[in-house]
Write a protein that binds this DNA or RNA. Structure first.
Lengths: 129, 129
DNA sequence: ACTGATGTACGAATATCTTCGTAAACAAAT
DNA sequence: ATTTGTTTACGAAGATATTCGTACATCAGT
């Protein structure tokens, strides 16, 4: 199956990846400052975590200046797919549409978002014909 | 925030919950037999896991006969919501629609499923008016 | 040169998850 | 009654993840 390695970030790693995807390349302090707003965390904890992620190949690191700059090496899209598929399989009885409806009902999206989804569905319909 | 306890099943626990949601109340052996088809697992491992889940309050247990019968105590819907929200927050930049489109593109759903989603969207539109 | 602030490296303690061996209880079959 | 197979209970080892203290390096301001 996946000769391309499976991406399995832990919870904490995902938190950090999320920040890096949004902010782009960042220092430990920048990541930490955002992380702190969401959860209790010591600075060295964040540092260690990011070092481990670098060891695992999840992050790249630019050490040219004293303060290192980290960047996500795994793509957000691949990770999303990976997690979605796993979730659909185990929690949604294999049905993607079940997941979709749950997601829409839940977090009620803005009208703009719903429109985007409608357009997306129309496109898919076109292509099927 | 969530005075109602947060549900945080582990990976393995989710596998078992998935089976119990689908099959309903089951014995360890029944669960194990299905689990085995998907992954390497020893019987006592499954047993232990289910005992732990019972301790945690994730499963109920009927011990009236020698062979105990377990049942999921956490609802599939609540768990789905919980996991979805977490995922939307960390991996999808807080955008439910981004998740939805990724899910639809991915696992391409059957025409019937897509129709169901369209109907669902129309319903939402109605209610907004 | 000293001080304080900020950074990395490292190691280790803690917590959590996962796996399984072994023992004891029990029932069915011989 | 003894054996065989199935079950639960228990404990502990092994794996993995998380947290943080401490030491050392570096730089800016005094």
């Amino acid at each position: 199956m996946d000769a391309a390695k499976t991406i399995r970030p832990t919870e904490s790693e995902l938190d950090i990846l999320g920040i890096l995807w949004e902010k782009g390349p960042s220092t430990v302090r920048e990541v930490h400052e955002i992380l702190e707003q969401r959860k209790e965390a010591g600075y060295t904890t964040t540092l260690k975590l990011m070092q481990i992620m670098h060891d695992k190949g999840l992050l790249s690191r630019d050490t040219s200046s004293k303060t290192h700059v980290y960047e996500a090496l795994v793509s957000q899209e691949k990770t999303q797919q990976q997690l979605l598929n796993k979730m659909i399989d185990t929690v949604f009885n294999g049905s993607a549409s079940q997941l979709v409806m749950q997601a829409l009902g839940n977090h009620r999206s803005s009208p703009e978002e719903l429109d985007a989804i409608r357009r997306y569905l129309s496109d898919m319909e076109q292509k099927q014909k």
